[in-house]
Design a protein around this nucleic acid. Structure first.
Length: 865
RNA sequence: GGCGUGGUGGCGGAAUUGGUAGACGCGCUGGACUCAAAAUCCAGUUUCUUCGGAAGUGUGGGUUCGAUUCCCACCCACGCUACCA
């Protein structure tokens, strides 16, 4: 290392040398120690797609900065890394390149692991695993059986996208404009039996706990609340007029019951289907709805349509006969697939009633005197009951309760809580996933595979023909012998990959455990203290993981209610786009690396030309880096050119973690420049070590420099620990380095303050740029690892000032800055302000009506014009 | 439509509890060094200006001695979600 401390900053030599020191000393291996406070820092593990992208770099750098900072505070830190290794892209690669998914995945992991190591992240690699390892997924198979025993697993039919040409089930993202992505054939909807997890059993807890999760972003909590979508209402049975049964509906507005003028049921509702059997027009409508629902784009502007059904129901309060319609806006999947329509107070019902000339009866009046214009739109707010018999004059809650109580007493209704949340469909008709551990006997009766038979191993050396899952064609997998000796067959569906990512954080605590899913080490490390990842996982992954953790808790496996104490959601990494528009209007995008941009004298982009042909390309908006926009910057190229520290520094400096980050190549250059100048400054200083360090009292200039040093410690500590604002932390260190650069180091005392300043800068930057700071730490005369050092301690005495700058305003406008003693009283401040010549220009010959003194900050003189 | 986030120089961003708007960095302009280039260093850089100042944080109001910050109304952008009864 010592021979690397030359005039030239060469990250390509320094970084591997420092990483070798960490590896030799197993610096980041985490060991459970009940005597020490733990800190579990986790980033969402990556899908091994091939190469790291800039989003990964940003995510993992944020996590690494936090983990390394917590280490320096003395905490026992666990920061693991692994691979979310099952998933569709591996199958696609297999089809395209004829490589088995396992092989493709494992070689990607090997490459990406190398990239992560090159970036110098402080991971405990001894805990690494991939979710496609049987030693990992066997335990989720085992846990599936526990959930099955508890009744939290069930089998039911569900609709899938079926490609009639390829004879396979398609994932939603494989359906493009209603057609199969490979075959181009129109996708059909098929109902097949699939496995579900009863997440709805935990709906209330998942919802209620959000109120106590103070360290989660409000945005994410709101999204989860909306997703769970709890609503309280009344389930009411309307009697069919012919006495053949009831039509059950769910409403959150029983207070509008008197305004119900018709009923609307879904096209798939049994009563609709029953009527369709004997009425051609209804059957035709049902058929047209079936086709409409496939394309979501059409749904957006779809007009409300319906057909009247050949029967009526009885209004439970008035006894009036109400017509029943089937309508395309009523969803079979929510509530009972039927609604009571109150056109005066529901916009959809209003539009439908208008179109088909159904009566609109107002039964709620607004509480203010604005009135409600039922002619132009529905009045959907709560108000006072009118036209509602004996309930007139009651407010929303009173009407709700009175009607609910009456109908409940009459046996026509029950209060009910309805969720938008559906049970979690975990079956995937895919090969590259964890086999669902279920076996069937000859009659199709199913049971979970016995624990002794686990894991049900996914065969990895499979011949891939066409596009369908090879599992179904593998007799050695698909056939088996049941526990009682009878012949049986295996489930060939695999788990949704969210299944694996729902508990990997617990497994990291004890990934070498062969006898159980988790052990007592999970009690030491869990819950995760901070979880960092993209906002795109706000609902699905983070909700499934919360549910799974609670299910594991109830099985006695873990002992916390929530898996993630704090959540930090990072913003997207964005970049300008460049494109040309073809004659068909289709855009062809060019990578920023292949485009030259010219600017005017203000630095505004004027034109962009493709380097290959020199012709102009259009400068498009700044968008999230993506394959489709071809605006990705390859991190590896930057690491090769500038080193890991520069890439880490720039990603932390360009924007705060939660905001989107606009990538700028020239600003990366600036980050590199800063590291180079810190390097030069430190080495020059180290070479000037004086014989005598000096112990005279510090001159004012040096006291000021020391104050800057300790102000920086205060600022950076707050930014990193409380605010998670690494951009301003870095800016503060840059400012300190600017001060140090300008300082004269001509005495022993000056050298010592400089030494303190540089040591401080190195320590404060250590979590962000760990390689260069390690080298500089040695240049400053220290042995050993910077990673084992403690965070700098603030010397609050160093913050004391001789004088304070006080801003003087006249009528709120800044007119002067005057110096006063830090403990100056009001009168002194006021006098100093009035004595300033520039202030006097605005105060002479005018009456000072009021003086506001904010101690230590400013004086505002309010004068009469 | 609903929910959420945001709107500040040429650009990324800063201003943490209502108290100096534009920290830090990029870019740009000028200069030094150099045969030259790169690298490096120095100075300047919100706009307008009669060089006194004036205006200025999406728009329009309000509260306040004082508002990027709080309140009301609106506009725009992005994200998620979507006929949820």
């Amino acid at each position: 290392m010592q021979d690397l401390l030359t005039e030239r900053y060469d990250p390509a030599l320094i970084e591997p040398a420092v990483q070798a020191q960490w590896d030799d000393q197993r610096t980041f291996a985490a060991v459970e120690d009940p005597a020490r406070e733990k800190f579990y820092c986790l980033c969402m593990f990556p899908y091994p797609s091939g190469r790291l992208h800039m989003g990964h770099v940003r995510n993992y750098t944020i996590g690494d900065v936090i983990a390394r900072y917590q280490r320096m505070l003395g905490k026992n830190v666990l920061q693991p890394m692994g691979w979310d290794a099952f998933g569709l892209p591996a199958e696609n690669a297999a089809i395209e390149n004829n490589v088995p998914p396992a092989e493709w995945t494992r070689s990607n992991i090997a490459y990406m692991r190398g990239q992560l190591q090159r970036l110098g992240f402080a991971y405990d690699w001894s805990r690494e695993f991939a979710t496609c390892d049987p030693s990992y997924y066997r335990w989720e198979q085992w846990f599936f059986s526990r959930l099955y025993e508890k009744g939290l697993v069930y089998r039911a039919t569900a609709v899938v996208n079926w490609d009639p040409v390829d004879q396979t089930v398609l994932a939603n993202e494989q359906v493009i404009d209603g057609c199969g992505w490979r075959s181009g054939a129109p996708v059909e909807r098929r109902e097949i039996p699939q496995w579900f997890l009863r997440i709805t059993a935990y709906a209330d807890e998942l919802l209620d706990e959000l109120d106590r999760m103070d360290d989660w972003p409000d945005a994410v909590k709101t999204m989860q609340r909306n997703w769970i979508g709890r609503s309280e209402g009344l389930s009411i049975r309307f009697a069919l007029s012919d006495g053949s049964g009831d039509l059950e509906i769910f409403t959150t507005r029983p207070d509008t019951l008197y305004g119900a003028t018709y009923m609307a049921v879904a096209p798939e509702h049994p009563l609709t289907l029953q009527a369709a059997a004997s009425h051609a027009d209804i059957a035709a409508f049902v058929e047209s709805c079936r086709h409409q629902s496939t394309s979501e784009a059409v749904l957006e502007k779809m007009e409300k349509q319906g057909v009247q059904l050949p029967f009526t129901v009885e209004h439970p309060l008035t006894g009036e006969a109400l017509p029943v319609w089937t309508a395309n806006f009523v969803l079979m999947g929510y509530g009972t697939g039927a609604v009571m329509s109150v056109p005066a107070h529901d916009q959809r019902d209003w539009e439908f009633a208008r179109k088909y000339q159904l009566p609109i009866v107002q039964v709620v009046a607004p509480t203010d005197d604005k009135g409600a214009d039922i002619e132009s739109a529905a009045f959907t707010e709560h108000g006072i009951a009118i036209n509602s018999g004996s309930y007139d004059g009651l407010d929303f809650q009173a009407t709700f309760d009175a009607i609910a109580d009456r109908l409940t007493a009459e046996g026509r209704a029950e209060r009910r809580v309805q969720y938008r949340l559906r049970d979690w469909l975990v079956s995937r008709q895919r090969y590259w996933g964890c086999p669902i551990p279920v076996v069937y006997d000859a009659d199709g009766e199913c049971q979970p595979e016995s624990d002794a038979q686990l894991p049900v191993v996914l065969p990895e050396n499979v011949a891939w023909e066409g596009v369908t899952s090879p599992l179904k064609k593998l007799p050695e997998f698909a056939t088996t012998v049941l526990a009682d000796g009878r012949p049986g067959s295996r489930e060939t569906d695999t788990f949704d990959t969210f299944f694996e990512s729902s508990w990997y954080f617990s497994r990291f605590c004890c990934s070498d455990q062969k006898e159980s899913m988790v052990d007592g080490r999970a009690d030491y490390w869990m819950p995760v203290d901070i979880y960092i990842g993209g906002i795109e996982h706000a609902v699905l992954h983070l909700l499934y993981a919360r549910f799974f953790h609670k299910a594991m808790r109830d099985a006695g496996l873990v002992h916390s209610d929530e898996p993630f104490t704090r959540l930090l959601t990072q913003g997207m990494v964005c970049k300008e786009t460049y494109f040309r528009e073809g004659t068909s209007g289709r855009k062809q995008y060019f990578n920023p690396a292949d485009v030259d941009v010219t600017t005017d004298e203000k630095g505004r982009a004027i034109t962009a030309r493709l380097r290959a042909d020199g012709d102009e390309v259009t400068i498009g908006p700044v968008e999230k880096m993506s394959k489709s926009k071809n605006n990705g910057i390859d991190p590896q190229t930057l690491i090769d050119r500038y080193g890991a520290d520069t890439v880490r520094l720039y990603t932390m400096f360009a924007a705060p973690p939660e905001q989107s980050l606009e990538w700028s190549d020239t600003a990366v250059e600036g980050a590199f420049r800063f590291l180079k100048s810190l390097w030069r400054l430190t080495l020059r200083h180290a070479s000037e070590r004086p014989q005598e360090q000096g112990n005279k009292p510090l001159l004012p200039a040096l006291r000021t420099l020391r104050r800057h040093i300790h102000e920086t410690i205060a600022k950076v500590s707050d930014d990193v620990s409380r605010r998670y604002k690494f951009n301003t932390a870095i800016a503060a260190v840059m400012e300190l380095v600017n001060h140090l650069t300008r300082a004269e180091a001509d005495t022993g005392e000056a050298w010592s303050v400089m030494q303190e300043g540089l040591e401080t800068a190195v320590l404060l930057l250590a979590p962000i740029v760990p390689h260069i700071t390690q080298a500089l730490w040695q240049a400053l005369g220290h042995d050993g690892l910077l990673a084992e050092q403690t965070w700098p301690v603030l010397d609050s005495a160093a913050l004391d000032r001789d004088t304070l700058e006080l801003v003087v305003q006249v009528n709120g406008k800044k007119r002067a800055v005057v110096n006063v003693a830090p403990d100056a009283d009001r009168e002194t401040c006021e006098a100093a302000a009035l004595a300033d010549s520039n202030v006097q220009k605005f105060t002479t010959d005018r009456v000072i009506r009021k003086v506001i003194v904010v101690p230590g900050k400013l004086v505002n003189l309010v004068v009469q014009d």
